[in-house]
Write a protein that binds this DNA or RNA. Structure first.
Lengths: 359, 359
DNA sequence: GTTAGCACTCTCTTCTTTCGAGTGCTAATA
DNA sequence: TATTAGCACTCGAAAGAAGAGAGTGCTAAC
């Protein structure tokens, strides 16, 4: 059953008002603000029906109305006016983003911080790298006991490890291993690094001191680490400024859930573009999030890497503003990091070489 | 004026009890638990004097007593029995520490997490590197537009940067710059890297494409970053489990202060060993910490690097337990990372090459 | 110097009352 | 038929009142 136009307007007004005040919304308040030409009595009738339909609820008989998750869902899907950021706002956002990117190496967690600041909610950020491989190995010989492994990954990330051995290795072994690793360990995913392969390499290099194993272990560890999806959570404390988290126990529960980084994103349905997804209350899988909402935007971080950036807050949340901001942020990130379009002059993957790319 | 033995005993009993219960302590409770052979009436007299001396206070006339910062100070300095961790406890702690160190690269922040878990308070961790320099440069030529800068620092940390240039550089330039940087940029602190030095290097290398500047910038940035003191804060949410932070506003204030990482440690007086310092309430410099306590332990992270690890909590804190744990942790870290004693077999600076060093 | 005894103080809890915002329903109205 | 004014009713929040009890300070006896 489709809702009448007036019901929709009223529902939207309730949600808007509730988002603003965090107090149950009365019929009178709607009559006054939501310029539909009818009295509070009429609105009361409509409200009663909206309750019956499951979009609203009453904390108690003589209280105003509060949106249910279903109500928020309808609001998000159809009713809310997609908020366009003003020119100034989006300019400011872009400037901030640029500032961040200019100094960033730690990338993801920093982006999360930015999102958290912009929205005043806790933010989570993560990248999921489809299948990063090592593109190139370099072994730097420091002294007989010491060398550095440098691995350039397929996503242009560089990882390194300082290795100090209790026994000495001669230069030729290090060199030989460098060649061998570049021949057999590049371009393959972590699961292709079998113990057979390692053993074969060890034999081929005449390695009697176990150096091969060390490098292989580094390789496995690095790929594992890069490919694993870990969420960076920042700004948990911002929860405390929300009225629904004035109860310390409730706040503590959610905050420690977030801090433990166990967050799993539900499968993203579509694969393209900077889609913004909204998960309202019970739509979340995790028990701890059942009465919170999550908004995530995905972006293309280039080289098969997809990034997600999201915020967590009470179900009573300014969905349109947050979605707009996150969308903007994700779009900005895609543009700068993504593979599709050419990156701006003088800039490549997470890295600014020189100059200033602010528009 | 020196306190009588009995007064000391009573004060200690008040603090112990208050730490346990978070409730004002009554004369009766002390008479029962603190086996001094006298009645509650006598204790009341003593308590009144302790209040007059400023070691205790009363929330209101007919309430029990609560320690003042001065009371805690005396307690920490003289009264508390330095808690020895049981053999099992210290073994467990050492095991956990080893587990952490075995997988750690991100070092400091992980140590903080461990401290936070062990104590159930928010923890902060930082290292202050006196004057790290670059020990060795390597430039890895990937292709004409791309190369990797690898810098081995004097603290055995390795930093790298992936660089993609809009113009191409030939191999010989990269090689030449490698030599030049190793000659002039190693062993010097960041402030010694002058623009004159950079210009001279650029000339000497016949660098027309600005590569020298890029490497120098990386160098400056890296040294700056490594030498700058940033505190990693973890476990802020644990504050919420403390009764004194049930007020969300109070909790929020402190938590966002901590999250902003602006924490400055007061000068450490003595320079040697794994000293544990306690800062009680108003002894803290930051306004936000005036009614919290901070306990920090310093450790020697080797190569001129000093590390600090601490926790933040209400003034009502189990000082002896926390101090014991942090001290233990710091000692463990000094032993593993520090320069003094020889590191355990097969292990060098933050890095386990192979094998298992659990005792 | 110590202690029993007791009046006094102050908070905390519980109960009651009051107030008012907001509803649901009914009857009148366009 | 849809809307609205009017009004009784409900329920929570705030304010007050009363009582309980924990703990003190003081006094007088030991």
């Amino acid at each position: 059953m489709a809702l009448s136009e007036r019901k929709k307007k009223i529902l939207a007004a309730v949600v808007d008002e509730y988002i603003k005040t965090a107090e149950p919304v009365s019929s009178k308040a709607i009559a006054e603000t939501g310029n539909l030409g009818c009295s509070s009595a009429t609105i009361r009738n409509e409200l009663a029906e909206l309750v019956a339909l499951g979009y609203l609820e009453q904390p108690h008989t003589s209280a105003g109305r509060v949106p249910t998750p279903a109500g928020y869902r309808l609001y998000v899907n159809e009713l809310m006016q997609r908020q366009k950021l003003s020119v100034e706002e989006s300019e400011e956002l872009n400037r901030k983003l640029n500032d961040r990117l200019a100094v960033m190496d730690t990338a993801i967690s920093d982006i999360g911080k930015l999102a958290s600041q912009l929205t005043n909610y806790p933010a989570l950020a993560l990248t999921s790298n489809a299948s990063v491989t090592v593109r190139r190995f370099d072994l730097i010989y420091v002294d007989a006991n010491t060398f550095i492994i440098v691995a350039l990954l397929s996503n242009n990330d560089v990882k390194n490890k300082y290795v100090h051995l209790p026994v000495s290795a001669d230069r030729s072994l290090v060199q030989k291993l460098g060649t061998l690793f570049n021949a057999s360990f590049t371009g393959i995913t972590e699961d292709k690094i079998t113990s057979a392969l390692i053993a074969a390499t060890e034999r081929a290099a005449d390695d009697t001191i176990g150096l091969t194993a060390v490098i292989a272990a580094f390789c496995i560890e690095t790929l594992n680490e890069v490919n694993s999806v870990t969420a960076y959570v920042t700004g948990e404390n911002r929860l405390l400024s929300q009225p629904e988290f004035r109860d310390p126990d409730k706040a503590h529960k959610l905050m420690s859930y977030l801090s433990n980084g166990g967050y799993v994103f539900p499968e993203t349905g579509s694969e393209h573009g900077e889609e913004v997804r909204v998960l309202i209350g019970p739509e979340n899988v995790a028990e701890e999030l059942k009465d919170s909402s999550v908004i995530v935007a995905s972006y293309d971080a280039g080289d098969n890497t997809k990034g997600l950036i999201g915020i967590v807050g009470p179900t009573r949340m300014d969905y349109s503003a947050v979605a707009a901001k996150l969308g903007m942020l994700a779009a900005g990130l895609s543009k700068r990091l993504g593979g599709g379009e050419a990156p701006p002059e003088g800039m490549h993957n997470k890295l600014i070489i020189k100059g200033d790319d602010r528009s």
